[in-house]
Design a protein around this nucleic acid. Structure first.
Lengths: 188, 188
DNA sequence: CCCCTCGCTCAACGGTTGTTGACTCAACAC
DNA sequence: GTGTTGAGTCAACAACCGTTGAGCGAGGGG
């Protein structure tokens, strides 16, 4: 072992973090249902009972491990908004945070994750809608913008579509920009 | 009972269909993992063992129940293509077939469903890419078109986003058309 | 009418899962 | 040094799942 002389509190914090990291990775890879407490414990080199003792239940472990969702952008200018949205796509530098991937992975088959994502997307839609120019149906347009980016993210990060994986990130953003822009502009 | 005097073969076909219908509905609602043979059997008023006897395994029941995926459109003209794509969104008249919903519901957490959807989307991407004008990166553009529609479908049919559910179908299609068109046109 | 066929049920097995309680042992306080 | 706290383990329970084999009873051909 490289780490010598850890205090008891240090060891506790370390194994707790190891459990959370393993849980995040497994939840992101297999989803809530197919991720087992035993597998998480094994990934952290720990007894399954310890995971329960620290986090109470599998659900609690999930919520603790997943936590955050990307902050929704707030911009009044449409062009800046589009840039912010494209930037939060997770295209650059290692993709989205693993907690977000875990949440998205489970959102179609787990009620709790579905509720969370629905609420988060709802907030994002409201934010985008408020920033849109005084066009017709700003909220519907915002919903289409958000779900469009959701679809590209799913295809890229979760389904691993070869065409998207092989494409350079800035190329995707460049092609996507006019499409997003078209959703925010009045119909001709 | 209203049905009297069914032949043995008729009864067999009837219960088989009842099992398949219940399975399709449950798979579409809860996904592969969380759908239990016992629940399918209960929905069809039948013993769980009978489901096994007829379909061999849960996997086989899934593939038999889910079957089809919407046929990919083949059109040389871009405008016609866009219309075809928007039409296959499942926005009109009761949404997508339940088998398709079942497949999509499980695609993030089930390996078999993921492979199937990846292949189906790949074919769709190839089809759209071949129909695109001689612009740059036709395949990448096609992938973005397909994943965009995928995202809207997920938000609408699977996540039940209120904004999309409340909007009239033709309005969504009208707002989406310029965005899809922008993905197919050369950058300015 | 007999008897075989076949739709269908009943009861159970083996495996996996989340969860629990008793236990061990090293770290810390006094 | 002694007693206590708390990190970590071990073994097990209860529930649920897919799956199986034996058996029942009506239907249809001879």
């Amino acid at each position: 072992m490289s780490t010598l002389r850890q205090s008891r509190a240090d060891r506790r914090r370390a194994t707790e973090a190891r459990i959370l990291d393993g849980a995040r990775e497994l939840f992101a890879e297999k989803g809530f249902e197919r991720t087992t407490i035993r597998a998480v414990a094994a990934a952290a080199n720990v007894d399954p009972a310890l995971v329960m003792q620290y986090f109470g239940s599998k659900r609690e472990l999930f919520t603790q491990a997943v936590q955050a969702f990307p902050a929704q952008p707030t911009a009044t200018d449409t062009d800046v908004l589009v840039d912010q949205l494209l930037a939060s796509l997770g295209l650059k530098l290692g993709g989205l945070p693993e907690g977000t991937l875990a949440m998205m992975r489970s959102m179609l088959t787990d009620q709790t994750a579905a509720d969370y994502v629905r609420a988060a997307l709802g907030r994002q839609i409201d934010g985008v809608g408020a920033a849109l120019p005084a066009a017709e149906d700003p909220e519907l347009r915002a919903a289409l913008v958000v779900t469009t980016l959701l679809g590209v993210t799913i295809g890229h990060q979760l389904l691993d579509l070869a065409t998207l994986r092989e494409a350079p990130a800035d190329r995707i953003a460049a092609l996507l920009r006019p499409a997003i822009k078209a959703l925010t502009e009045p119909l001709e």
